[in-house]
């Protein structure tokens, strides 16, 4: 495996990339890596260096912890529903 000790690192790279309408090649060229590396990152098969993590976050204009986390991210549906549930409860 190519795992760079990334077993506990979770990311939302695929989600952000899809939302930005970027292909793997586009994103790879913006951060200076091989497009395959983006695929490995998205599948959690490789943990990026701090530099690469920061570069990726900069592309999407978000803090790095929105993109990568040591804890699993909440499912998107649950994240979207949470504010509505809170509003409905008021």
């Amino acid at each position: 495996m190519t795992n760079n000790d990334a077993s506990s690192l979770h990311n939302r790279l695929a989600l952000f990339r899809a939302e930005a309408g970027l292909s793997r090649e586009d994103l790879a060229s913006q951060v200076g890596v091989n497009p395959q590396t983006i695929g490995f990152l998205e599948r959690g098969q490789y943990g990026p260096s701090l530099e690469l993590g920061l570069k990726l976050a900069r592309v999407f204009g978000v803090p790095v912890e929105m993109l990568f986390s040591l804890e699993p991210f909440a499912p998107l549906a649950a994240s979207l529903a949470a504010p509505r549930i809170m509003e409905g409860g008021r």
């Binding site: 190519t2 760079n4 200076g32 890596v33 091989n34 590396t37 490995f40 490789y46 990026p48 260096s49 690469l52």
Partner: peptide
């Protein structure tokens, strides 16, 4: 080589 390829 990018960082992943260099490590591998």
């Amino acid at each position: 080589l990018d960082e992943r390829e260099a490590i591998e």
